[in-house]
Computed example of a mutant assay.
Amino acid sequence: MQRFEGKVALVTAGAQGIGAAVVRRIAAEGGSVVITDLQQDKIEALATELADSAGDVIAVPLDVTVREQVDAAVAATIERFGRLDVLVNNAGGCIVSTVPEDTTDEGWHRQLDLTLVGAARCIQASLPHLVKSHGNVVTISSVNGLAAFGNIEYAAAKAGQIAMSQNFAARYGSLGVRFNVVAPATIRTPVWDHQPQALDNLKGLYPLARIGEPEDIAAAVAFLASPDAAWITGHTLPVDGGVLTGPGLLDLTPSGPFRKDYPTD
């Protein structure tokens, strides 16, 4: 499929993990991609890796908490390609590790500034160009924004992304701009590199009996950003291995498994 042929996407936090998988997916489908991240060496290496892809791929350093850098990244996109069709808001993370009752105002501000306000800055800078191209925004939120999985400050920021996207969708739909959200559950990204056992221990929470991969999220992003989702806006798509359905593979009955086991060969 070449769903992004002739299109230009800007991906934040594209150096590794979910962001890098999204970059690879859009480039593989013919799109030109502006990879942004704080880790300049990694985005330049990724751009070099994808030099032979169907679309052009460039690397632009970006800290989404600095408005001047956000504006400059969008300007660099327009200077290079003359258009912007897709914004993928992937920058964010759980940066507050204190007990929530003890979180300082500074901690709250840092979390919200990176995850929620950072996404808003990118949308604001991109909007004039997305209106021209009838483009769209896909924001990477989290199941933490949909249910109580802990990390309260992070969850609040992720829930804010969902509410913000719904409001932008209602406000700009008549101008042809779509806003959607992907909400991942546990994904095998570098943040888990030093906790492989913890990652494996989480498998039992998931009805699909595995941890998600960055490519699972990239596939969902590519769908929502493509013409295949032309009549979808203001929605949040959980990509969660079924964790939001409830207790996963736990035995729910006192007498035995709650499902019939079938041969898997």
Rank of each mutant, 00 (worst) to 15 (best):
T103P: 10
G248Q: 08
A54I: 13
T245N: 07
L252V: 11
T98C: 10
L175F: 05
A157P: 07
T115P: 02
L112D: 01
A28K: 15
I162D: 00
G241Q: 08
L224Q: 03
Q195G: 02
L205P: 01
S32M: 09
A163P: 02
Y172N: 04
A125P: 04
P207I: 07
V99K: 15
K132N: 08
Y262E: 14
P100N: 11
R210W: 08
D37E: 01
A27G: 08
V177M: 11
L10S: 05
P263C: 03
P227S: 06
N151S: 13
N144A: 07
W108K: 11
L202Y: 05
I123V: 15
A15H: 00
D193Q: 14
V99I: 14
G17K: 11
I58G: 01
D52Q: 13
S32D: 03
A220P: 05
R188N: 15
V86D: 09
R210H: 07
A198M: 14
V23L: 01
A13R: 01
C94Q: 14
K158E: 01
D228K: 09
F258M: 11
E215W: 05
T233H: 11
G135E: 06
T139K: 04
Q69M: 13
A125F: 06
L244R: 06
E68F: 11
P196K: 06
Q2R: 12
A27R: 14
Y154D: 02
I211V: 14
K42G: 04
V23I: 08
E101D: 12
G256R: 15
A45V: 06
L127V: 10
A183C: 12
R83D: 07
L114K: 03
L208K: 07
W192M: 08
A54R: 15
H235A: 11
A51M: 07
E79N: 09
V23W: 01
L130V: 05
L224S: 02
L146F: 00
V99R: 15
A159Y: 01
V23F: 01
G242L: 08
A170M: 14
L50F: 05
T77A: 12
D251T: 15
R178G: 05
A21N: 05
S97V: 12
A148V: 11
